[in-house]
Design a protein around this nucleic acid. Sequence first.
DNA 1: AATGAATGAGTCTTCATTCAT
DNA 2: AATGAATGAAGACTCATTCAT
Lengths: 193, 193, 193, 193
Amino acid sequence: MKSNKPKYNQIIEAAVKVIAENGYHGSQVSKIAKAAGVADGTIYLYFKNKEDILVTVFKEKMGQFIEEIALATSMQENAEKKLFTLIDLHIRQLEKNHDLAIVTQLELRQSNYTLRRQINAVLKPYLTMIDVIIGEGIETKQFREDINVPLMRQMIFGTLDEIVTNWVMKEHKYNLVDQVPQIHALLIHGLRS
Amino acid sequence: MKSNKPKYNQIIEAAVKVIAENGYHGSQVSKIAKAAGVADGTIYLYFKNKEDILVTVFKEKMGQFIEEIALATSMQENAEKKLFTLIDLHIRQLEKNHDLAIVTQLELRQSNYTLRRQINAVLKPYLTMIDVIIGEGIETKQFREDINVPLMRQMIFGTLDEIVTNWVMKEHKYNLVDQVPQIHALLIHGLRS
Amino acid sequence: MKSNKPKYNQIIEAAVKVIAENGYHGSQVSKIAKAAGVADGTIYLYFKNKEDILVTVFKEKMGQFIEEIALATSMQENAEKKLFTLIDLHIRQLEKNHDLAIVTQLELRQSNYTLRRQINAVLKPYLTMIDVIIGEGIETKQFREDINVPLMRQMIFGTLDEIVTNWVMKEHKYNLVDQVPQIHALLIHGLRS
Amino acid sequence: MKSNKPKYNQIIEAAVKVIAENGYHGSQVSKIAKAAGVADGTIYLYFKNKEDILVTVFKEKMGQFIEEIALATSMQENAEKKLFTLIDLHIRQLEKNHDLAIVTQLELRQSNYTLRRQINAVLKPYLTMIDVIIGEGIETKQFREDINVPLMRQMIFGTLDEIVTNWVMKEHKYNLVDQVPQIHALLIHGLRS
DNA sequence: AATGAATGAGTCTTCATTCAT
DNA sequence: AATGAATGAAGACTCATTCAT
């Protein structure tokens, strides 16, 4: 696929790099074009408009992100382990890819409302995946019966998102993967002693 | 106090309203001025520039927000109850003020890096307050000894933030305060049955 | 006179200072008001508008300038000596007063066409004075009969103006008065050996 | 050459015309663009900013102006004739081109300090050319040995500049070229009978 | 398919001037 | 006479998008 549409991929990779380096508002179409080694006009042969580049960046990158997590969790035998795997890969993947983390945690959020809705749509399957894991945990009695699934999913996603965002804003100065067991424990056991 | 600087307050209130209605990028200075019933130039007698309006809106509103929570939690006798109060008021205050919720959860995040850092600075005391409550819980053995305080704080704040943001993006279609006890329970007990 | 209209004079002196220090375009009415120790509005009790301040500055200062030259030349016995005195005082007065020189040679020329015409009107008597001296020289046969008076006046004024402007632009780094005899000689004898 | 950069030249020609007609402060970028028959934004493909248009106008026009004088004087056999040619062409070229004369003598001087310095840099070779002619005259004993070259140059340039400026301010109501022999005579012989 | 020159809509900010006190 | 808070008009510049080549 990559070899079929080389410019398309060039542009997406350039966009991630340019946005991570220059910020959302400093990433003009002409700058992305230059980084991709194509003419400004060429961008519009592959993308409807600037917003479309950004949405596509998110779709492609998050698509891989989600797929990898989906695959890995499916190979775990129970909900608790699946949750651990999800946390681990969520954090591991973003920690591995600084540029992408900057783009997803900071820059893309500076977009307008329309783009935000599209980004949420891309995230939908991921959130559903979390819902399914929680549901499975409840069914198998690993998790409490009275758990409100959407609420618990917001807790899980909100926690992970906040943790990664903090790490990005602190300029990746500390190690994230090491905290995975603690995060998992907090989500499973809560605060109570 | 309000009567001393009427224009100042007019402008801040207008800014919240205009941003909530038109979004961050649709909120021209002239639109805010018009909504405040002052001339464009008057804005610049009270604010250094457009960004300064936004920072100030956040400072003033979050200042009250945080203060109210600080006061209420201080009157609770133990960490668990303090946490409940914090969750309750965090959600209650934003649910009560739709416009403010839109501004803090969605619009202000579309700002540039500089503004983001200033917003974080304003939030700092709130985050510290959470840290202190967790610390108190650990000392009094209400919470587990091995809890990583910053991590737990990110979990609490991330959860609340995600919950309110979801509610705003779903256009406030459901009741939030009702979920407070469940949120509290999840944070205290976690998923484990 | 000064004691009768203290604010009036305060404003004029402040204007010269502020313009010399901040340049024409950096000299807002409010800055002049502040330097003069009066309120912005007070300016408009004494001057019709901003342009009026500038014209008045020029009128007052150039009035003194011209008067002093008129007095001194009138005490010289012949045209050649009068010309020497005129050159000497023209240069001496501006060299003595750096701020005024900056204002007259550089800053006030950045004004618009209307102001320029008014400035020219103020200069008129000075130019006429030069004309009269040349005429006297011709009558007394000190100067050639076939001299075109306006042309010669333009030569004299143009020369002096250019010399002072160059000196101001070179930031007053050299001594001007020392050159007076040479200037006089050049105007009297020309280039020819 | 013109056909290679048509827009560039269109903009420069339009700028001279617009500034001559509307004055420096009345020449908005949009007005120049309209007169040049291009979009506002096109200006910025060829010029860094508004000031850059003005500096370029001066550079291009004065470049030609100076070159023509350099060529013509070089073909004269001695310093006195070279000086005559310089005076003649200085005045002839500006008299021929009313718009340019207005721009160089009046409007461009309303510019700020930065622009003024750049304009002076453009004039530098012209002033040097005058210096060289004077030096040559001294060497060949046409001119007096004791002449202060910079001073004499300021006298020549100041005289020409003042004469042209007066003519522009009098709205070109009289003939300038006719005065060339008189100007030359005054510079060569001075006032003395 | 690819180019890149050209377009032109859109906005924050300054500052001379006014006028109620 | 004096104040100074309030006014609001005015303009340079950017950048997403188009289209002739």
